[in-house]
């Protein structure tokens, strides 16, 4: 076929048919695997009317699960924020022995199945675990209690902030910090006035992702929580229990709330990206 001289087709790229097919495929895939289930969650939750939906959410056990989930996230996210910044600072700006070991350890929660992570805590702090008898003698309960849930969540959400920051900080190098120090800034001033502003967007993404995972974590928490209604049930665990009891409306009501939290997180990220696009672009330069 002779080339059409009036074609607006770019030199690099595919024909319109291929392009449409690719876009269509992507949309179809997204619809089937993401949008459809999400819609199903909300439609199931509202299947028996808004009253039933509200009743499922305001049940005392559900309220307790919501409260626990928020509490756990409120502890785990700040902890991992501090740890993540400290670890990436150390890895990106200094050279020390055992650096690659630290890097590997940060990735551990990603590579290990969450169920195993939960089991490790049971083995350590459970009644028959290494520290179990000592803890029991001192009246401290970790497994099948809130501290266990918090610890498991912290473990699983360990890498999010650090993984987001390390490449960013490595790329930025140490020249800005050196400039600040030569100008007379103290270590803390350098961190607060130079390093932190340079990483703030990456840090925000890390925190948002960390938060989403902290609220949604199931496997590790499931092992250590003991599923005590009204006490150690987080939202994902509560959803499972309700579902297993064939209480679909309540199960999906709680699930929809969880999904909503995730959507809010995503929306917050999108809004921030849109609102501060200039600054983000400038920070990358």
């Amino acid at each position: 076929m002779p080339a059409d001289p009036h074609s607006r087709r770019p030199a690099v790229g595919e024909g319109p048919v291929t392009r449409l097919a690719l876009i269509g495929l992507a949309i179809l895939f997204l619809a089937a695997f993401l949008a459809l289930p999400l819609a199903a969650v909300f439609s199931q939750a509202l299947a028996k009317g808004f009253g039933a939906f509200l009743k499922g959410l305001t049940d005392p056990d559900a309220l307790s699960a919501i409260q626990l989930t928020l509490t756990v996230a409120a502890i785990a996210v700040p902890l991992n924020l501090v740890f993540g910044v400290a670890a990436s600072w150390a890895i990106a700006k200094f050279n020390f022995r055992g650096k690659s070991l630290l890097l590997a350890l940060i990735d551990l929660p990603f590579s290990v199945s969450p169920v195993i992570s939960g089991l490790v805590y049971v083995l350590l702090f459970g009644l028959h675990g290494s520290f179990g008898p000592w803890l029991r003698d001192h009246g401290v309960q970790i497994i099948f209690a809130v501290p266990g849930v918090v610890m498991a969540t912290v473990f699983v959400t360990f890498p999010f902030v650090a993984r987001e920051l390390i490449p960013l900080m490595q790329e930025q190098g140490v020249e800005d910090e050196e400039a600040a120090i030569v100008l007379g800034a103290s270590g803390w001033q350098t961190f607060r006035l130079v390093t932190l502003p340079n990483i703030r967007w990456g840090l925000l993404y890390g925190v948002l992702l960390c938060n989403a995972r902290a609220m949604g974590e199931f496997g590790a928490v499931s092992v250590v929580s003991g599923h005590i209604r009204g006490k150690t049930n987080t939202m994902p665990l509560h959803v499972e229990i309700l579902y297993n009891e064939y209480n679909f409306v309540a199960a999906f009501a709680v699930a929809s709330l969880l999904a909503l939290l995730a959507l809010v997180t995503l929306a917050a990220k999108a809004i921030l990206e849109w609102r501060f696009a200039d600054q983000i672009a400038a920070a990358k330069r």
Binding site: E175, D176, E178, A179, V182, L193, P197, N198, A282, A283
Partner: peptide
């Protein structure tokens, strides 16, 4: 040390 240092790539604080 009260030393003025100009870096090769300037290291200006971009924010």
């Amino acid at each position: 040390r009260k030393v003025g240092f100009v870096f090769q790539h300037y290291a200006l604080f971009r924010h």
